[in-house]
Amino acid sequence: MADRARWEQPFPARFLIVGEHEAGNRTDVDLLLGRCAAVEGLFADPPPPPREILVLRGCTPGVTAGWLGSAAITGRSDAGREYGWELLDAEVLVVGPHADDPALVDLVVATAVGEVADFRFAQDPCERFALADSRNEPLTTCARVTGLLVERPRSAPLPVRLIGFEPTEPLRAKLDGGHPGWPLYTELWALDDDGRVLDRISTGLHIDRTSPSVLRGGLLDVQLSVSPDRLPGPAAREVWRRWQPGPPEQPGGWRGLGAAAKQAWQTLALHRLDPGPDRPGGEYHLAGAGVEDVTGLHCALGEAINGPGGYYGREWNGLKDCLGGGFGPVSPFTLVWHDFAVTERELASEEDLAGEPSYPEDLARLLEGRRVRVVRA
């Protein structure tokens, strides 16, 4: 990768534009399309989705007026298909009687609604709905939701500017030929100080305009339109700064970061992962004190298994994938979980379990079910 980052300029290439290239019957060959000195707009905070009023009609009682925060509505069709809507910063404004059945209630909810990619409004309508909280605990079920089953515009793309961009000949030929969106799948690769890949962002190549670069030297400044859900966002800025000199050499660099920044940390950990062949056996030590939250626990687990800046799943399902192989250690092995009780106390504020096993205990049982010996120290 360091070779691809070299160019004849008085400043380093910090980013590469790489496209998916067809080679014979393969379409996964990386094609270098260009290098650039800097990118502006990666850490933009997109505007929040608009607030809406939903009315959940014919609900089972039990929900009271008040703030819900993050929540979700699940709809089920007669065909058995489920659809989900994420509710952001939701608040139950009014709990009122249901006109057709005094045993039921109607809920008036103010919220922003997340995007739904594949809802088939006409072909497969939902017949019943369920409202759940952020822990996926059910709150109520209802017959219908007024205001939910509507088409919503996708988030407007945001401008991302490539500063000091030098296209390679394949891209220059396509641009000169009037094909500004080629190839269809394009990534922006951020590089660290040694030219290693820091992150890969699926930006596409939707070029709005080009102009001679402020850096001169025959370079270009190029403005792209990028969907906001593809950008790393503001929480990643500090994480990138910490990883810019190279992968961390000491554990715990993620401690003290917010949950979104820890997620960005794990994204960088995944991109620099070089686990080698699957390795059964061995003993690994998880530092369970000071993990702060669930995301921090997975950061600590990644470091325990694969060293500082290591990755071993960013959440529950990601951990199951890692246990299946391809990420270094595979079972059977031993994990010594130091300060296990401290981990449970730290994560207790995120849970309302009413006697159910804690998230750390559930995670330990998942590992044990996959032939990992967990020592709760």
Rank of each mutant, 00 (worst) to 15 (best):
L131E: 05
N136Y: 09
A117G: 07
R161K: 13
L87Q: 02
V145W: 12
P157L: 03
R128K: 15
G177L: 05
D101F: 04
L88F: 01
V116T: 13
L93R: 15
R120K: 12
N136A: 14
A117E: 14
T140L: 02
G177W: 03
D118T: 03
E166Q: 11
P102C: 11
L158A: 14
L175A: 05
D78Y: 15
D101C: 02
I163F: 04
V94H: 12
R128E: 13
Y83K: 06
L104D: 03
A103T: 00
G80C: 09
E82L: 13
S77N: 09
V113G: 04
E137H: 10
G84H: 08
L139E: 02
G114R: 08
P138G: 01
R76G: 06
D101Q: 01
V105T: 03
Q123W: 08
A173F: 05
H179K: 12
L87N: 02
G164R: 04
V108S: 12
R152Y: 08
D124I: 08
L171R: 03
P97Q: 05
V160Y: 08
C126R: 05
R81C: 04
R135V: 07
G177D: 15
H98D: 07
D176H: 11
G147T: 10
V160T: 07
G80I: 04
V92C: 00
R152D: 09
L93A: 14
R144G: 13
P159C: 11
C126N: 06
L87F: 04
